[in-house]
């Protein structure tokens, strides 16, 4: 029964969200409840206390519609525009340039670390070669999509 399945999955997701927000309230750290919840859900899945089939249908739907949640905050731009009109261009420039910097530094650092390890593996230290093959296969898949 689909109804029961979705109801169960939503219950699990809401329970984890509830515990996350609860931890945010009782622990004195500046960590949002959603992040506690994410970590908790991850731990529940890793330890096998929850199987991914028990949350993935409702969870997949929530992940897919996530951009809808940002419409409200995005539209709030019209409330702050007026007061910042004269400094809008530099503010936008900071946002855009630093986003490019973060993307470049993060991506290239990751790629450099991954390449170094791939090089080491090729030169004889093949401990777990099958996982790297999986990643290479995905790379090809990504190219075909484009």
């Amino acid at each position: 029964m689909d109804t029961v399945k979705y109801l169960k999955q939503m219950t699990v997701i809401m329970a984890v969200s509830f515990i996350g927000e609860f931890l945010n309230r009782v622990l004195p750290l500046p960590v949002p409840g959603s992040v506690y919840g994410l970590v908790l859900m991850f731990l529940l899945l890793v330890t096998g206390l929850i199987r991914s089939e028990q949350v993935e249908d409702a969870g997949g739907f929530l992940v897919k519609i996530m951009p809808v949640l940002f419409i409200g905050p995005s539209v709030s731009l019209i409330t702050v525009m007026g007061g910042l009109a004269d400094r809008l261009v530099p503010i936008l420039a900071v946002c855009i340039l630093s986003t490019m910097a973060v993307m470049a530094v993060t991506g290239l650092t990751a790629q450099a670390v991954l390449k170094r390890r791939a090089g080491r593996e090729r030169s004889g230290l093949r401990d777990e070669p099958e996982e790297r093959e999986g990643a290479a296969g995905r790379e090809e898949g990504g190219k075909r999509e484009e």
Partner: peptide, 25 residues
């Protein structure tokens, strides 16, 4: 507008929680 739209944002925590699923896979 926000009186309604802000209610959608209540799903931010459950949505963020569900990001654990693709991560776990």
């Amino acid at each position: 507008f926000d009186a309604g739209a802000s209610h959608i944002s209540y799903f931010l925590t459950p949505c963020t929680v569900c990001l654990a699923i693709p991560m776990y896979k």
